[in-house]
Structure formats: structure tokens, C-alpha cells
């Protein structure tokens, strides 16, 4: 038996393990096997044990990238880096709840499928898959934190990173992820590898706003994106003009911010512009939305003008934290 196993497995200790396992199986089966057939049975069992070990390894290799898909680019020979990574993964795994960890390891490492996991946990395969996705999202966040050896500075950070890691756009809006990334430098840095995940969105443009020239870039970006929805020429001009006004507000009053332009498919086709800044905030919103009010030498038309140009307009401002303007233009159908 040892001969059969070691013919297939080079590593001595592994071979010993497999021989042991085969023996256990054969002994357990002696009652069921005819006396003369014990030897062939042992040989077949040994073969099976070896084969299933290969399968296991293969599956492990195939699945490994799913457990850890955030590894920095391979840099051969840097054993230290690899060790740090392993520590980080171990620490990240520790952060998961016992149940999360068990399920994840059973699925990713032992290769147990979602259906049998669901049966064990008394739930459905879909629920297990969803749970696994959430767990992987958490694992990515915890891994990054462990690798950087940092703790997020505020209690808002983890939910934001988690929402980014899972790629859940609704959740990202709920936790106002965009604003948080503007305000929180560690998260902005940590989230970089998370952002690259999932489908690249070609229906969204993000334009950082710092100086005059960025205003032109923002309205050009908005126009380029809106063109794809076949807005009329007039609407394209209206949208770029509104973007120009909110972008200028950022440059003049806040100094830094960003404009995100995204295409909407539901409830109707349209374009949404979100302008965020980390400026001082607007003390009197009602006044700022009144024609002619302006604290710099403009026409005082920035915000009220943009509101008139777009179909929907909302503004939220908090003293000391900044302002977010969200405005939407729907495409006229037909």
C-alpha cells in the first residue's frame, strides 16, 4: 500500500498521512468486504485517497484568489512581504465572527458548496452566497487595515469601506461614501484598491475640483457623458452650464471638492450631478438660493441659476463640514 501511495506522492510525510488514512478507511470497511478481496480494495482505496488529495489541492489553488484577491502585485523573492501578507490575512480572519469564518473556510478552502452549507445552517443556498459575499467584502477591508496596521480614525470609516468593498451602490449612498472619502484621508487611500473592484463603471465620471481649469473639465466631462444618453443639444448646454455654476462655487468658496456625474436608467433616463466640497458650508441656504445674493463678485446666479436649469435640485450644507449639491436632468422621451 505504501508502495502504491509513494509511487504517486513524492513528499514522504504526505505519503505517510495518506497511508494512514487509507488504512483507517480499509479497517472501517472490513466488515463489508469479502475476505479475499481485502487487498484489491485497499489498493483502490489508496488510489482514491491520493486522487482526492490532488482534487483538494487543485480546488484550493483555484479558489485561493477568491479568498485573497487584493494581494499586491507579485514581487518574487520578497519573502518578508509574503509573511506580512499572511499575518494580515490571519488577522483579518480573526476579525470575522466565528460563524462567518467557519462558513467562508468551509466554502473557500474545503470546497463545500453553498447548497450543503445551506442545509447545515438551515437556510437557503442564495442566502449563504449572499452571506459569503458580505464576508469576503469584510475580509478585504480587514485585510487592508491589518496590512496597513491601522485602525480607521472614525466609526464612520468601516461602514463606508465595507460599502465600497461590497460594491453596493445603494449602501454607498446611504453612508454618503463620496463625502466621507473627501473628508477622510486614510479612507481615501485605503479605498483605492477597493474601488478598482467589480465592473468598471463607464456611466460615471468623477472630476476633482481645485482650480479654475477644473470647472471647464467638469462641464466637458458632464457634456461627454450626457451625450451618450442623446440629450438634445440645448439640454447638453443647459447641463454643462449648471455644472459650471456648481463647480465654480466649489472653487470660490470651498477650495476643494469633486463633481460626480452619473447616468441614470431608472425611474427614467437622466443624468445626475453631485457636487461635494469640504468647505466652510453655507450658513444661510435660503439666502444663497435667492437671485442676486452673492458673496463674491458674481451675478449671484450660481445656485439659483443652476436650480432653474435642472429638473431636480437639492442642497445640503453643514457648517464646518461642507456642502453637497445634487441635481438631476431627465431626458425628454420621444
Amino acid at each position: 500500500m505504501r508502495r502504491i501511495v509513494s509511487a504517486r506522492v513524492a513528499d514522504r510525510t504526505t505519503a505517510d498521512d495518506l497511508v494512514q488514512e487509507t488504512l483507517v478507511r480499509v479497517l472501517a470497511a472490513t466488515a463489508r468486504v469479502e475476505p479475499g478481496m481485502l487487498e484489491p480494495y485497499a489498493i483502490v482505496t489508496a488510489r482514491n485517497v491520493v486522487a482526492s488529495m490532488w482534487q483538494e489541492r487543485d480546488r484550493h489553488r483555484r479558489n485561493q484568489h477568491r479568498v485573497v484577491d487584493l494581494r499586491a502585485p507579485e514581487d518574487p523573492g520578497t519573502d518578508l512581504l509574503a509573511r506580512e501578507e499572511r499575518t494580515a490575512i490571519a488577522r483579518a480572519l480573526e476579525r470575522l465572527s466565528e460563524r462567518e469564518r467557519q462558513t467562508l473556510l468551509a466554502h473557500e478552502v474545503s470546497g463545500q458548496d453553498t447548497r450543503s452549507l445551506a442545509a447545515e445552517l438551515g437556510t437557503t443556498a442564495g442566502a449563504v452566497a449572499a452571506q459569503l459575499n458580505r464576508t469576503r467584502a469584510r475580509l478585504r477591508v480587514e485585510y487592508l487595515l491589518a496590512l496597513e496596521r491601522t485602525e480607521p480614525p472614525t466609526d464612520r470609516c468601516r461602514p463606508v469601506l465595507l460599502a465600497l468593498s461590497s460594491g453596493d451602490r445603494r449602501r454607498q449612498r446611504e453612508v454618503d461614501a463620496g463625502r466621507h472619502l473627501l473628508e477622510c484621508d486614510p479612507c481615501a487611500r485605503l479605498s483605492e484598491p477597493l474601488m478598482g473592484r467589480g465592473q468598471q463603471r463607464d456611466d460615471l465620471t468623477r472630476i476633482p475640483i481645485h482650480r479654475d481649469g477644473d470647472i471647464v473639465a467638469a462641464r466637458q466631462g458632464a457634456r461627454d457623458l450626457a451625450t451618450r444618453l442623446r440629450f438634445s443639444r440645448t439640454d447638453l448646454t443647459v447641463i454643462s452650464t449648471a455644472v459650471s455654476e456648481v463647480a465654480r462655487n466649489i472653487v470660490r468658496f470651498a477650495g476643494a471638492g469633486e463633481i460626480v456625474v452619473e447616468l441614470l436608467e431608472a425611474p427614467r433616463r437622466g443624468i445626475r450631478v453631485t457636487a461635494r466640497d469640504t468647505g466652510p458650508g453655507i450658513p444661510d441656504l435660503e439666502q444663497a438660493l435667492t437671485d442676486g445674493y452673492s458673496t463674491y463678485h458674481g451675478l449671484g446666479l450660481g445656485l439659483p441659476g443652476a436650480r432653474r436649469l435642472m429638473d431636480e435640485f437639492a442642497i445640503v450644507s453643514e457648517a464646518g463640514r461642507g456642502t453637497t449639491v445634487t441635481m438631476t436632468k431627465w431626458r425628454q422621451e420621444g
Partner: peptide, 14 residues
């Protein structure tokens, strides 16, 4: 002044 620009200028309230 382009027609679309004229439209937007009026809508903006300039």
C-alpha cells in the same frame, strides 16, 4: 451666441 447657449443663458436668468 449659439441658439442653445442663448436658451441656457435665459434659463439661468442672466
Amino acid at each position: 451666441i449659439q441658439p442653445d447657449v442663448a436658451f441656457a443663458m435665459v434659463a439661468l436668468g442672466m
